[in-house]
Amino acid sequence: MLELQNINKYYNQGTVNEMCLFQNFNLTIKDQQFVSVVGSNGSGKTSLLNIICGSIPLDSGSILVGGADITNMPEFKRQRRIGRVYQNPAMGTCPNMTILENMALADTKGKPFNLLPGTNKQRISYYKEQLRFLGLGLEDKLHVKVGVLSGGQRQAMALLMSTMTPIEFLILDEHTAALDPKTAENIMELTDRIVKEKHLTTIMVTHNLRYAVEYGNRLLMMHQGNAIIDTEGDEKSSMDVEHILEKFNEISIECGN
């Protein structure tokens, strides 16, 4: 279980540009929940992910995982239990290393990075099998540098790499936004398959309302640092895109847009 308690986060504190993002924000995410997060720009979606991952510091409040306080744990240590896929496909892979080397790197997560061979030859058939699962033919290009792959191929690899070792949480930061519709659809199906197979607790930020409705078992709509929609289970299943869009328009009118 992931708990955010009384989160406060200000930007530019103490200046005229001071902006309050989260004020006493609380959120509890149960194990194996798949939460889709939607909301307008600047509503705090990505900040929420950054706070969970430890990429940005908190002003006050605490973050608990399974009851243990991880508020002061540095970002890289938290990543041990987290897999994260970014909007930019370049963020999840090393462009100047080969597909095989990238897979081997991801496979070493959680193990000591010592003087053992970087690529364990016995694992190559496993990597091939995993890459075949993507259906992009990457299993035959093991010695090709990742930098020459397309955005969609890289994002598929990033997803595979971030979920290769045992993790508890999968953090998806608009991970289909930079892809063409067809590729985005494939990546989204792949995501769903991996999440179900590995029983991951997932938080997915997306601007695609259809994905938010179709995938996952809980939906949050963020607005000015608050969750103005929070539905799960049957209630979420009955939601449709029109309903969310309606709510979207409502808040936009409030803001005077």
Binding site: F76, N96, L105, G110, G118, S162
Partner: peptide
């Protein structure tokens, strides 16, 4: 030989993509 070890891979990764090193739960 060093650049082919796990540690060497990580060294190459940090110059290539720092974010990935953090994602691998290592201090860049």
């Amino acid at each position: 030989q060093y650049l082919k070890t796990r540690s060497g891979y990580l060294l190459r990764a940090v110059g290539d993509n720092e974010t990935l090193v953090t994602s691998l739960a290592k201090d860049k």
